[in-house]
């Protein structure tokens, strides 16, 4: 994996796909995210972005709302 390819989930544009490579967040968030399917090596799709607000993402069969501040703690490689 090339470091230059790594971006933050919050930076992705709408309708783009990426693979999660790192979740640098509090354990409580990481555990809940994992239970929802949001974990390393999973493909994530950005479904909707609001103006400076939260992001709607999809992992496997589930969609979630995540705040940009939290999405900025998830590193991804765009596909």
């Amino acid at each position: 994996m090339q470091k230059s390819q790594i971006r933050l989930l919050s930076e992705l544009s709408q309708n783009s796909f990426a693979t999660i490579v790192e979740i640098d967040h509090q354990p409580s968030f990481t555990l809940k995210a994992a239970a929802l399917g949001l974990k390393i090596n999973k493909t994530v799709c950005v479904l909707h972005k609001s103006n400076n607000g939260p992001i709607c993402i999809k992992v496997n069969t589930s969609s979630f709302m995540i705040r940009a501040i939290d999405a900025a703690k998830i590193k991804v490689i765009p596909q």
């Binding site: 409580s28 929802l36 939260p54 589930s62 969609s63 979630f64 709302m65 995540i66 939290d70």
Partner: peptide
């Protein structure tokens, strides 16, 4: 201490 937000959006 703003807590993280991760809310499921069901179909």
């Amino acid at each position: 201490d703003n807590e993280s937000v991760l809310i499921e959006m069901p179909a």
